[in-house]
Simulated assay, not measured.
Amino acid sequence: MKLQVVVHRARLGAEEFRVVRPARPLTRALLVDRDRYLNAYLDQDAARDIAGLWMLAARSPRSLVHVPIRANRPPDGAVPDGMGSRLDLVLLHHSLQFAPSRWKQVRGRIGPGRPQTASLPVAEPDDLTRVDHAARHHRENRDLFHQHLHAETLFMTGSAQVFRATVGHFLDIARKGPGYIEAHPGSQHFCTELHSNDGTLGNAREVHIEYCDQWAA
């Protein structure tokens, strides 16, 4: 799988941060804070791109993978006004030990960037079925996502293993969403979820991920 990205540098004092963004804007993607949970709305292309960025975060422990989507228009019939704040997304490996409180400064110092093509392994649709589910619920399991909110941004911090174990959610949306909507015109709802019972969430809320093919112009 090839993913077009732009690699930026941002310097704070003696420290330099590597920030990776998708080369093309994900205009049909939205992340909304619903208080008790988070709601992601994606079309097929955005779901495929986020799956690629998810895999990139798994193999790039020194990078902040930034998905700027909070200014996007909502899908038709979704996200009424007053029903949650819209967020950007940052994916990062826990070993980076980045403090989200520094993000606003880093974001303000991001340079122009350099285009790059990332070569990623082709993920299979059944990636989730290969995970040792019993081990996920063991008390020593450290392959968990932790979330922080800062500067209108959701930070998803985790290990390479937990990123790889959960990329299948976005692949399902990209591969199955369009066909499901076509086959079930009366339903118009295809979704998946990062659920608290999956054993992948530590200090983190559930994320409801919904396929949407109709978006505001």
Rank of each mutant, 00 (worst) to 15 (best):
G113A: 01
T153G: 12
P125Y: 01
Q147A: 05
A204K: 04
A99I: 09
P100T: 04
V106I: 10
N141H: 01
D126H: 12
A57E: 02
P80C: 06
F190E: 00
N203T: 14
V207K: 00
D43I: 10
R164P: 04
D198M: 13
H189F: 13
D88Q: 08
V67Q: 05
Y211M: 02
Q44N: 06
P75C: 09
G111W: 01
S196E: 12
L53N: 00
E210S: 15
S159V: 04
F98G: 00
V131Y: 02
Q161H: 13
P178Q: 03
D81N: 11
R18Q: 14
A58R: 00
P185A: 05
F170H: 12
S159P: 06
Q188H: 08
L30N: 01
E152N: 08
R109V: 07
P178I: 03
D213W: 12
D198Q: 13
R34C: 12
A58Y: 02
A165E: 15
V162I: 10
A51M: 02
R36K: 11
M1T: 14
C212P: 00
G77L: 08
D198N: 13
T200W: 04
G177L: 01
E15D: 15
N39Y: 12
L38D: 01
R21Y: 09
R142E: 07
G113R: 01
A14S: 15
M156V: 08
Y41I: 04
L30K: 12
R86T: 15
I181M: 10
Q44Y: 08
L12H: 13
T129H: 03
L64G: 01
A118Q: 09
N197C: 11
P25N: 03
L120E: 00
Q116M: 10
R70L: 09
S63D: 11
A71Q: 14
D45H: 13
V67L: 15
V7N: 09
T157L: 06
A78G: 09
F190P: 00
E193S: 10
L144Y: 05
H8V: 09
R21G: 09
N39K: 12
M1A: 14
R107Y: 06
A123W: 03
R36S: 15
A47L: 06
Y41L: 11
Y211P: 01
P125E: 02
V5G: 02
T129V: 05
I69W: 02
Y180A: 07
H66P: 05
I50S: 01
G202E: 04
D143L: 05
G202W: 03
E140H: 11
A217S: 10
L42E: 03
S159A: 02
I173D: 04
A217P: 08
P68F: 09
V90S: 03
A165D: 15
R28G: 06
M55K: 07
R11A: 15
A47Q: 00
A10W: 04
Q97N: 14
Q44K: 14
A118D: 06
M83D: 13
L26H: 01
H184N: 09
E140W: 07
P112L: 04
S159F: 00
L87Y: 06
F163D: 01
V167I: 08
C191V: 08
H148E: 15
Y211R: 05
E193H: 14
Q97Y: 12
A118F: 07
